[in-house]
Amino acid sequence: MSGFRHIAMFAWAEGTTTGQQQEVAAKLSELPAVIPEVGALSLGTDAGVNPGNYDFVVVGDFASRDDYIAYRDHPAHRAVVDGYITPILARRAAIQYEM
């Protein structure tokens, strides 16, 4: 397999509502239709099996590093990050790698 993968994990701030979390997921799920460079976008909420986990994950697959960068910098993605994620974010971890 070839391509480029981006994984971002989020821990929500105390007091974040279920509605806010669902809104983040809904807004992120709209991005593949808006940003053609997105090959696949998978979203998930932690299953609650282990304590201390992050709350939410985004896994994005792209054909190339350049396609990931186009997604990262796209105004629609930036609007989701700035308007929906950042206001409720306690911490974030991310990694990108060649597949």
Rank of each mutant, 00 (worst) to 15 (best):
Met1Phe: 00
Ile95Glu: 03
Ala13His: 11
Gly44Phe: 08
Arg5Leu: 07
Ile7Leu: 15
Phe4Met: 04
Ser2Gln: 10
His6Met: 13
Leu28Pro: 01
Asp55Asn: 13
Val58Tyr: 01
Lys27Val: 02
Pro51Met: 01
Met99Pro: 00
Phe4Gln: 05
Tyr71Asp: 10
Ala90Phe: 00
Ala94His: 14
Gln22Ser: 10
Asp61Trp: 01
Ala11Trp: 07
Arg78Met: 14
Ala13Phe: 06
Leu43Asp: 05
Ala40Glu: 13
Arg5His: 00
Ser42Glu: 04
Asp61Gln: 04
Gly19Ala: 15
Leu41Gly: 02
Phe4Glu: 05
Tyr84Met: 01
Leu89Met: 14
Phe56Leu: 12
Glu98Asn: 02
Thr86Gly: 00
Asp46Leu: 02
Leu31His: 08
His74Gln: 11
Gln96Gly: 08
Asp82Gly: 15
Val49Ser: 01
Leu31Tyr: 03
Ile69His: 03
Val58Asn: 05
Tyr71Pro: 09
Gly83Tyr: 06
Ala70Gln: 08
Thr17Ile: 09
Val57Ile: 13
Gly60Val: 05
Phe56Asp: 14
Ala76Thr: 03
Gly15Gln: 10
Arg5Val: 12
Thr18Leu: 11
Tyr97Lys: 05
Val81Arg: 10
Pro87Ala: 06
Gln96Cys: 02
Lys27Asn: 02
Gln21Cys: 12
Ala8Gly: 12
Ser29Lys: 15
Gly39Ala: 08
Thr45Pro: 00
Pro75Gly: 03
Val34Gln: 11
Ile88Val: 11
Leu89Gln: 14
Phe62Asn: 08
Glu30Arg: 15
Ala79His: 05
Gln96Glu: 13
Gly83Ser: 04
Arg92Val: 14
Gly44Glu: 12
Gln22Cys: 08
Pro36Met: 08
Ser2Glu: 05
Gln20Thr: 07
Asp67Tyr: 00
Ser42Cys: 00
Asp82Lys: 13
Leu31Ser: 06
Arg5Trp: 00
Arg92Lys: 15
Ser29His: 13
Asp73His: 07
Asn53Gly: 03
Ala26Met: 11
Leu28Cys: 07
Val57Cys: 15
Val34Leu: 13
Pro32Ser: 06
His74Pro: 04
Phe4Leu: 07
Arg5Ser: 07
Ala47Pro: 00
Met1Glu: 03
Asp55Gln: 06
Ile88Ser: 02
Ala79Thr: 02
Ala11Leu: 13
Glu14Pro: 13
Asn50Val: 12
Ile88Pro: 05
Arg92Gly: 13
Val81Ala: 14
Thr86Glu: 09
Ala25Ser: 11
Ile88Met: 08
Arg72Gly: 10
Thr16His: 09
Gly60Asp: 02
Asp66Ser: 06
Ala79Glu: 09
Val49Gly: 00
Leu41Phe: 04
Ala70Arg: 11
Tyr68Arg: 12
Thr86Trp: 09
Phe10Cys: 04
Ala40Arg: 13
Ala11Tyr: 01
Val34Met: 11
Tyr84Asn: 10
His74Ala: 07
Thr16Gln: 12
Ile95Val: 15
Thr16Met: 10
Arg72Ile: 01
Ala47Lys: 03
Pro36Phe: 07
Val81Trp: 05
Asp82Ser: 15
